[in-house]
């Protein structure tokens, strides 16, 4: 145990998203939906009840025409690396959501979740969605459900897993191939899809990885750093107005 309250490992999976390249096209989000069997309903306009793991926020600079500018901020789960606990794992009464200290992934076990939604209340990023309905698919569309991710049931919370199942597969493959599973790399569905390649994924503790380099870029920032949640998702932008929206400030 370290002073941070958890066993140190040399893997911390994280993500860097270049907001200057993000065009808000939504490919990351749809790829995520397809990969992770996210359910949908005929009306998805009630955004507060719409299940999205990769939610794309539209930011604007609050100026008048024609100086008005928009930008997009894709928000996966931040997989907070806060000391001791992530905000959500700290509060779950049944240990349904925990942080895997081997790699920093915040996981969520659907069959154990009792649906108290305390984790949703604790998360300032609104990265978690609740199954307000029984997830159902039109009969034909059940054919496109992936066997690698279990569909959820009503009454449980779900969120981005950084495509944890892909990581397991990559590790399993490394074991079979006789290479070090701890060096196994993979990319989540969102990073794979991104048409402008704005999403970079990898081990933040591996100095040589692209993601580690980018996370130390002068353009890099995280959202709500003042809350000490220590997100493992970094954003890049050169534009001050976007950077200023990353955290609350008194000015």
């Amino acid at each position: 145990m370290s002073e941070k309250g958890h066993a140190q490992s040399n893997i911390r999976l994280g993500m860097v998203i270049d907001l200057d390249k993000c065009t808000g096209c939504g490919a990351c989000s749809t790829a995520c939906q397809a990969e992770n069997n996210i359910s949908y309903r005929p009306d998805e306009s009630q955004k507060l009840r719409s299940i999205t793991w990769m939610n794309i926020y539209q930011l604007d600079n609050k100026k008048a025409y024609p100086d008005f500018k928009i930008a997009f901020l894709p928000r996966p789960c931040m997989h907070c690396d806060a000391d001791h606990h992530s905000p959500c794992t700290f509060v779950c009464p049944v240990n349904a959501t925990t942080r895997d200290e081997n790699n920093g992934l915040v996981t969520h076990i659907y069959p154990r979740c009792i649906g108290c939604r305390y984790c949703m209340v604790a998360c300032p990023y609104h990265a978690r969605s609740f199954n307000w309905w029984d997830p159902t698919w039109p009969k034909q569309m059940e054919s496109m459900l992936s066997p690698e991710v279990s569909p959820r049931m009503r009454g449980v919370v779900e969120k981005c897993t950084f495509c944890h199942h892909r990581y397991n597969k990559a590790r399993a493959k490394a074991s079979v191939d006789g290479t070090d599973p701890n060096k196994a790399i993979y990319t989540p569905a969102c990073a794979d899809a991104c048409p402008t390649k704005a999403i970079t994924f990898g081990n933040l503790l591996d100095e040589k990885s692209e993601v580690a380099k980018l996370s130390k870029d002068p353009r890099a920032f995280r959202i709500l750093e003042k809350l000490k949640t220590k997100p493992k998702v970094y954003y890049l932008s050169k534009q001050d107005w976007i950077r200023n929206l990353a955290d609350n400030s008194l000015t």
Partner: peptide, 14 residues
Amino acid sequence: KAMNLTGLNDWFGF
């Protein structure tokens, strides 16, 4: 019928 009958949502978990 599940909790969609309530006024709760992903913002108001409680």
